[in-house]
């Protein structure tokens, strides 16, 4: 039963986890702590807001944000791009998957101010004229979702899975899509959708 985040381990940006482990003084909150059970006299955790330019779906957006803000919350709460979903905020479900520099990244484990490369979200996948990306159309055609909440993350992961060259067989697709949980359990149809859209995605 792999939670195959190994497929996602190659991203080069600074993550919340590495910040926390390497810079204790600047850290927001150790992940092992529990809410409501503080040790007294904790250091103030807030730092002054930072200015950052993010290129999101080919548009440059200047944000003044908290250094602790994740890319996920920057997209959802500051840029009103709510298509990217929060399912766990711990890098365990894949619902927040976006592309940074063309690679799939868990936006909940990525600090917004650390990003230097262009970001692509589900809202930027279709063409300007509104025609769907082949992977989006394949997800509709194969009924590869039910509630649809994990779907933006599945589709962003699926496009990357193909471009990485990891869609060579059903078994390979299953393995490299296993970082994206689907509680409605559309998994067999997700595999079918990726097979349908594979060649169009490779050439697109």
């Amino acid at each position: 039963m792999p939670n195959a985040h190994d497929a996602l381990s190659s991203f080069s940006v600074i993550t919340r986890r590495t910040i926390l482990s390497s810079t204790a003084a600047a850290s927001a909150v150790p992940l092992t702590m529990t809410r409501g059970q503080a040790t007294p006299n904790a250091e103030p955790s807030a730092a002054p807001p930072l200015s950052v330019d993010l290129v999101v779906n080919n548009r440059t957006e200047r944000l003044i944000i908290d250094s602790r803000t994740t890319l996920l919350d920057a997209l959802r709460e500051h840029l009103n791009l709510t298509g990217t979903k929060k399912g766990c905020d711990h890098g365990q479900c894949g619902a927040c998957t976006v592309h940074v520099g063309g690679k799939r990244v868990l936006s909940c484990l990525t600090l917004a101010v650390s990003i230097r490369e262009p970001i692509a979200t589900i809202e930027g996948l279709a063409k300007q004229d509104g025609s769907l990306h082949p992977m989006q159309q394949a997800f509709i055609d194969q009924d590869a979702f039910q509630c649809g909440y994990c779907t933006p993350g599945q589709i962003m992961s699926a496009v990357a899975c193909v471009k990485e060259g990891h869609a060579g067989s059903d078994a390979e697709i299953r393995e490299y899509m296993s970082g994206n949980l689907c509680r409605c359990a559309a998994y067999p149809h997700i595999v079918a959708a990726i097979k349908q859209a594979k060649s169009a995605t490779e050439s697109g």
Binding site: I173, M177, S178, A185
Partner: peptide, 17 residues
């Protein structure tokens, strides 16, 4: 109490249905 330790199937767990 999280999705890493509360096990639900991932894509690789599911065969033909």
């Amino acid at each position: 109490k999280d999705l890493a330790d509360y096990l639900i199937p991932v894509n690789a767990d599911i065969g033909d249905i």
